[in-house]
Structure formats: structure tokens, C-alpha cells
Design a protein around this nucleic acid. Structure first.
Lengths: 151, 151
DNA sequence: TATTGTTATACTCTATAACTATA
DNA sequence: TATAGTTATAGAGTATAACAATA
């Protein structure tokens, strides 16, 4: 026989992706009702508590290229959720800022995030939930993961 | 203050996506050296132990549309890793099958999967690893997740 | 009519690299 | 010359829907 190859399901990476995709897709469907993608929500959530952020800062924080952030910002501007401000001191620099309309939407979107979280992890015992939280947080530190997930 | 919104990092879904993206992207980079994507590997791994599989079966098993499977198959055929056979009994039906070249590649690709798994989860204690395995496997059952993850 | 599979179209996200304007 | 940001291009993935051939 030629089957000395482990099953796909034997890999933690496979299981992780399976569950993560399910959770993200469920969230994506909820956000779609508000015409917002997960990437757009993540930007909005990051802009919400601050005055404004430079695209380059956002790119670093989210582990995306500046080109990708530019396109994301284009979509958010087209939806009137975000505006671009020119810097007063540096002719090259810009800042992204939530519009009043964008800021108003954040609590509702955050509620969808909470709802998704509740639905997807309702089956976990509180002990399992705590363990999973600890393992995931620790893995992010151990693997030196800095990027914000988008997909 | 307007900050009654939970941090992004407070969500299990966020952490899960962060780790899952890291693991998948690391795997994707390893596979790229062999000019294979994660989705292509998953198809190859599924074809490996069997004679042949219909595109529709593959679509169901992987949670993808038939159109998506068609495109994936096109790429695998273009790379001479897979061939399409016509069914002898049903003029509509086709089957996908690994070429000799494709089958030869599977063990090397499986080794990359093992290597990625080892690198990404080396920091886990064996107890944590067992717990994570149990939690993930149980979540897949509880949430009735049937699709093979691709991204 | 229903089913198999392909094809067309469109959208999101990704990356590299060329480009503009400014420092 | 280096930097900030945009834009162009290309590729992989997603989905819906139209289509051909066959059952």
C-alpha cells in the first residue's frame, strides 16, 4: 500500500483552518447585511477609538501592504464610512478618519461580532473556553504574530 | 467616553483567525517552492488514496462550488498533476485522477505539511496539544462543519 | 425536466512594482 | 535620495448564473 501519509484531519493546522473559516464566514454573512466586509470592519474598529490613523500605520498594524490599505480605504470612502485628510505639516502624508456615519455604525457592527462569537462558541464549557483563550494568546506570542487577521 | 466596545483581541474568533492565517500562510510559502497552492494540495491529498473522484463529489467534500472545483482542476491539469477521465457509463460524468507525476509529488508535499505542523505547534506542551485537538475536533462536530478548509 | 460539468462574470483579498508628490 | 501614498497588474479564492450535453 502507498498510504503512509497522515490524514488531513490529523493536522492541527487543518482543524484550525476548518473552524476559523467557519467562524469568519459566519461573521462575514452577518456583516454583509450591513454592506461591510470583515477587513472593512477591522479598519473601522481600529479607527473608532482614535482621532485618525495614517494608512502606513494601519498597514503595519494589520500586516497588509500599503497598496492593499489604499484599496480598502477607497471602498470605505466610497461608502462614506471614512474620509481622507491631508496632513497640515507633511504634504505627502494623509490620515484616515471615520465619518460620523461610520462611527455611528460601529456599535451595531460590534454587536454582530458579539453575536457571532456567542453563536460559534456557545458549545464550549467555560473551562474549555479559558484554555482555548490561553493557548491561542500564547501561540500568538510564541510565533511572534503581529498582523491583524483579515480573511 | 464612547469606548464600551470590546477590543478585537477579546474575541476567540479573532485570535483563531490570527493563528490560523499564520499557519496557513507559512504552509503556503512552503508549498510555493513546489509550485502548488494549499487548495491544490488538498485536492491532491484527497485523490491520492483513491482511484478517481468526480468533481461533484470533491465539491461536496470540500465545501466548494462546482465552478470553483472546475477552475482548480484546470490548474492541476495545466500543471500535469491531474487528468480528467470521461465516465464510460454516463456521458455527462467525469472523474479526476492524479497523474503518475502528481502521485509522486504527494509524499514530498505531505512532508512539508508535517514540517509546517511541527514548526507552528512546537511550542505547545503535549498536554496543551491534546486539549487543543480535542476542542477543535469537538467544535467541528458541534458546529456541523463539513467543508474542507481551503484558504 | 433534472443533473453533470464548464464557462462567464464579478467581487475580495493578496503581492509586486511602477509612479507621483513631497521631504 | 528616501518616504508617503496611489495605482496598475496579476493571481488565487469566493459566488451566482448561464450554458451544453446527457439522463
Amino acid at each position: 500500500m502507498s498510504c503512509d501519509i497522515p490524514e488531513l484531519t490529523a493536522h492541527l493546522g487543518y482543524r484550525l483552518r476548518q473552524l476559523s473559516n467557519h467562524v469568519s464566514q459566519a461573521f462575514s454573512r452577518k456583516l454583509a447585511a450591513k454592506d461591510v466586509t470583515v477587513a472593512e470592519w477591522t479598519v473601522m474598529r481600529r479607527l473608532y477609538p482614535v482621532e485618525s490613523v495614517a494608512p502606513s500605520q494601519l498597514a503595519d498594524a494589520m500586516g497588509m501592504t500599503r497598496g492593499a490599505i489604499s484599496k480598502l480605504a477607497d471602498r470605505l470612502v466610497a461608502k462614506s464610512l471614512v474620509v481622507r485628510d491631508a496632513s497640515a505639516t507633511d504634504g505627502r502624508a494623509h490620515f484616515l478618519r471615520l465619518t460620523a456615519h461610520g462611527a455611528e455604525m460601529v456599535p451595531a457592527l460590534a454587536a454582530l461580532a458579539e453575536q457571532n462569537e456567542a453563536e460559534c462558541f456557545a458549545h464550549l464549557s467555560s473551562a474549555d473556553r479559558a484554555v482555548l483563550e490561553r493557548i491561542l494568546a500564547n501561540a500568538v506570542v510564541q510565533l511572534r504574530i503581529t498582523a491583524t487577521p483579515v480573511e
